[in-house]
Computed example of a mutant assay.
Amino acid sequence: MKKLIQMHEARHELKHGSAGFIRTMSGWFIIVLWLAATWFFASILGDWWAFGDIGAAIERSLLRLELLLHILAALADD
C-alpha cells in the first residue's frame, strides 16, 4: 500500500521546479498571454470607436502597455 501511495504522489507532484508544475504553469502563461493580447487590441478598437482617431488610440494604448510593464516590473522586484 505504501508503494502505491508513493507512486501516486510521484505522478502528481506539482512542487516548484518539478516538470509537472512547469508544464502546468506554462499552460496558464499561454492563456494569460492570449488574454493580455486580446485586451490590448480590444482597448485600441474601443478607443478608436469612442474617439474616432486611430493614431491617438494607438498612442494611448502604448501608454497603457508601458504602465502595465512598469507594474509587472515592480511586482517582479519583490
Rank of each mutant, 00 (worst) to 15 (best):
R64P: 02
E9W: 04
R11N: 12
I71Q: 13
G17M: 00
S26G: 02
R23H: 11
A50G: 03
W49Y: 08
A50P: 00
W34C: 14
L68Q: 14
L68D: 04
R23P: 00
E66K: 11
F21A: 03
L33C: 14
E9C: 01
H70I: 07
A42M: 11
D53F: 03
L4F: 09
A42D: 09
A19Q: 04
D78Y: 15
H16F: 05
I58M: 13
R11K: 15
F40K: 03
W48P: 02
V32D: 10
I31Y: 12
L69H: 07
D53N: 15
G20H: 00
I31D: 13
V32R: 11
S61W: 00
L14W: 01
G46S: 12
G20Q: 00
Q6I: 00
L33Q: 14
A10R: 04
F41W: 09
W28S: 12
I30R: 07
I22M: 04
I71A: 14
F51S: 05
G20A: 02
E66S: 13
H12Y: 11
A74F: 15
D53L: 00
L33V: 15
H12K: 01
D78I: 15
W39A: 08
W28R: 11
W49V: 04
G46K: 03
F40R: 05
S43A: 13
L75T: 03
E59V: 07
A74I: 11
F40S: 06
E9S: 03
R23N: 04
A42Q: 08
E13F: 01
L33F: 15
I5L: 08
M7E: 15
S43E: 08
W48R: 02
L68M: 12
F29P: 01
W49S: 15
G46P: 06
G52C: 01
E13Q: 04
R11A: 07
K2H: 06
K3Q: 12
M1H: 13
K3M: 07
F41H: 07
W28V: 03
L14V: 06
W48M: 04
D77S: 14
L35S: 14
G27I: 00
A37L: 15
W49L: 14
T38V: 08
S61E: 14
A56Y: 09
A37I: 13
I5H: 01
F29Q: 12
I58R: 04
W39V: 11
R64F: 08
E66H: 12
M25G: 01
A36T: 09
G52V: 02
I30Q: 08
L33N: 10
A73D: 13
G20P: 01
A19E: 11
M1L: 12
T24W: 10
E59F: 13
T38I: 06
R60L: 05
L75N: 06
H70V: 08
M25V: 15
A37N: 12
G27L: 03
G46T: 11
W39T: 09
E9D: 08
A73N: 11
A50F: 01
I5F: 06
